[in-house]
Design a protein around this nucleic acid. Sequence first.
DNA 1: TACATTCTTTGATGTACGTCAATCAGCGTA
DNA 2: TACGCTGATTGACGTACATCAAAGAATGTA
Lengths: 241, 241
Amino acid sequence: MTFQTPKVACSNCNLRELCMPPGLSSEEINRLDTLVSSRIKVKQGEVLFNLGDDFTSLYAIRTGFFKTSITSTDGREQVTGFQMAGEIIGLDGIVNDHHNCNAVALEDADICVMPFAKIEEYSREFPILQRHVHKVMSREIVRENGVMMLLGNMRAEERLAAFLLNLAQRLHARGFSQTEVVLRMTREEIGSYLGLKLETISRTFSKFSQDGIIEVKQRYIRIIDAEALKKLYDAHSQACH
Amino acid sequence: MTFQTPKVACSNCNLRELCMPPGLSSEEINRLDTLVSSRIKVKQGEVLFNLGDDFTSLYAIRTGFFKTSITSTDGREQVTGFQMAGEIIGLDGIVNDHHNCNAVALEDADICVMPFAKIEEYSREFPILQRHVHKVMSREIVRENGVMMLLGNMRAEERLAAFLLNLAQRLHARGFSQTEVVLRMTREEIGSYLGLKLETISRTFSKFSQDGIIEVKQRYIRIIDAEALKKLYDAHSQACH
DNA sequence: TACATTCTTTGATGTACGTCAATCAGCGTA
DNA sequence: TACGCTGATTGACGTACATCAAAGAATGTA
């Protein structure tokens, strides 16, 4: 993890519409430029923060890809999410001033550090930012509700279909192809996230591939028939009566 | 759902230490008394809000017991949480100004309605309240992380043990017995929350009962051997190697 | 009191996914 | 080029939980 002073300001960051609220005046934006206290580079495999670490800041991902996870007493891992450019991590730390999960880079990453005290200060000043922060947290709550539905009610194929569609959609929102996905995580990590074993992930990929729904070449996935995936995801309806 | 004007002010509500931040001056508390715009009574089985409803307010439970759930296209239900006195519901609605889950009373309830615009206004004024709101949201995120661990990694007995311990602990924090729990929800609702079928819940209760860990009489549960439950919950460690 | 309804319990059987194990592919390094 | 390491695939088999089904409480209601 290497530190550096901010070079790129939010005001001319191309991720601004993802990280920052829309509708700010240029004065406000200039003020918010000072929200990012520093920039951190995190290499693949390195940790941004660990369960138990002091919480001081939220982190905006400028480039790179992360997983967050929690570990039980014995060290078993539950991946709680995958985060990409423009997304915020660290919200778990607010409640008790310590982080309640681990954040590991799955790809070399560039992070904007936003001291939470400053976020709160500016939030009091700018209602637009305040609302934005609330929305970011609420969005995370709603996302996790969706994961609970996956884990509680859906079968392996449905879970993986939902996972792929979600990933493709988020990448698409960042200007990447909607049909081509390069996975940054292992089968085991996907499995952990989806409550399945790595062998099941592998088998399900193979099945989708045989059915002509996707093309699989290691970490490279091409979505051939997005409709079929969507149907699987909803088919849930039929499959479970 | 019946409306009434607030009779009891936060300043002399015995749940204040659960709903409200600690450390407020008496002036501040008096000001915050106006946060609750109205009081609602929700009868057992009635809905506080449904998925898709306009979001305007957060709701503090004064008395009663709720479940929140999401439903897939076909109407299958995933219970996302159970809430009791002193807890806040509605956070899911902030992100897109519409509720993203359903909230149903499992017991006659008395609700404090807190318009979210007012919460934001007062938050800008009172940093202590602002921090409190952030903590409430963060706590919900961390809780859901824990549920993901339950659903993704743990076996039926472990899930139910965790569920019972959590319920007993929350009731205890509200001055009730730590060993006696009256369930307000059906086996099916517990099952939905824990990603299991109602028969599995019933069987697991019976097993715990045979093992002398709990006493079960319908909805009444007495925890005889809390240590055994805790061990099960951790035993996760051993059980899964 | 009878009866309907809803919830719970328990047994018999089925299955989706886990576990175990072997092989293979990709990639970095000497 | 060889070697080691990590990750992926695939098969054979096992099991935890689901499903199906029937009967038994509990509660409300005519």
